[in-house]
Nucleic acid binder design. Sequence first.
DNA 1: CGTATTGTTGAGTGAGATCAAAACCAGTGG
DNA 2: CCACTGGTTTTGATCTCACTCAACAATACG
Lengths: 208, 208
Amino acid sequence: MTPDGERQIINFLLPGSFFCLDAEVLENADYTVTSLTPAVYAICDVKTMLAMRQQFPQLSAAVNWADKRETTIMMEHMVSLGQRSAGKAVAHLLLELHSRLDMRGMDGNGQFTMPLTQETIGSALGLTAVHVNRMLRKLENQGLITIDHHSPRQVKLLDIDALKEITGFDSDYLNFTNIPKRTKAAFASLDSAGNSLPSMSRTKHSKH
Amino acid sequence: MTPDGERQIINFLLPGSFFCLDAEVLENADYTVTSLTPAVYAICDVKTMLAMRQQFPQLSAAVNWADKRETTIMMEHMVSLGQRSAGKAVAHLLLELHSRLDMRGMDGNGQFTMPLTQETIGSALGLTAVHVNRMLRKLENQGLITIDHHSPRQVKLLDIDALKEITGFDSDYLNFTNIPKRTKAAFASLDSAGNSLPSMSRTKHSKH
DNA sequence: CGTATTGTTGAGTGAGATCAAAACCAGTGG
DNA sequence: CCACTGGTTTTGATCTCACTCAACAATACG
């Protein structure tokens, strides 16, 4: 929140998300977490977390993977905030939510329940609720989406390919194929080599 | 970069920054890193990194601390992109750069060298170079800053308190007092207790 | 020097904000 | 079952901040 009462939504947590991982190393956060729906969550205290990281390095890496994925999504949100027009930003967000839910099997071909109000969408994209409304209506008039406002709010993407084309949506930033080969290789060699520290880092100089 | 050639700058790396830590767990990044000035950097391969994390858990936590700090700065940039007016966003960025350099002793009372062009600032804040120019000129006319455009570009903040007041700048998000007590305590107890996994996580339910 | 990059300024335009009012809907309580 | 309430969506009219286009000045650099 800003001093004058505006808020910026940083990210949307979906089922399966880790959050507040910074509590491990940061004294206090300058953000808050609120739930838009009833939700189930688990708290893991710092001591447990750090013990886990020491005893199960690969599990620790997996947590880092999930964490970095959230950061990547944040970056994509920054692109929407800074570079995309209102219409594209709204459509992009719908595609993102659809994609993230889809890979957990939580949607049926383009349709998903979306508990976000237009005001909430606006707070995420830096737009007013009024303008979000106009953009949604435009997408609906273009035959790209339909929205059923009866709770629970349902969104249906009618032409995903067209939406992707319009917004330049590239799902690569969501579809990480899990831990990369180099990471697996590193763990494998660490297991066999008895944990000796490999080569020192190299120092390089960049041109302007 | 977007398909239509626009770019969004995610963050500015200053001397001492870690970057591309996601290479540990992500196959490929959808961002690039470029240097605006000659720079010196070191590469640490994944294997070395993971070995370090296993052998020196506290060093690992320190790296995570630096990493989370970057994420916090990104969040503040999202606030600028989504909620702040152009003038406030520009002033806020100047205050941030000043603060970050100040805590490394790289500025002299409000003055620092800033290799960013107005186009670069625009790409970070979602503004055009022309409008960044107007905002900078306004700040200068208000007697809040001066800029010397002879290379190396010098910025001087004449009234930091006024700038903070105007932009709602709160340096808390930069001034983390290093590792928090709970983290230190966790490490201490882990050292003495022989690394047994403490209590399991608790599951909770949130209301709507 | 000459050329490319960066900064500056003005005039006109437009995307999105603001203000305001009405319709719709989900709960609540009588 | 209905009236009442608060939150959400919808639409119109107006305004404004920031963009676009364009020209020129200043500076950097080979």
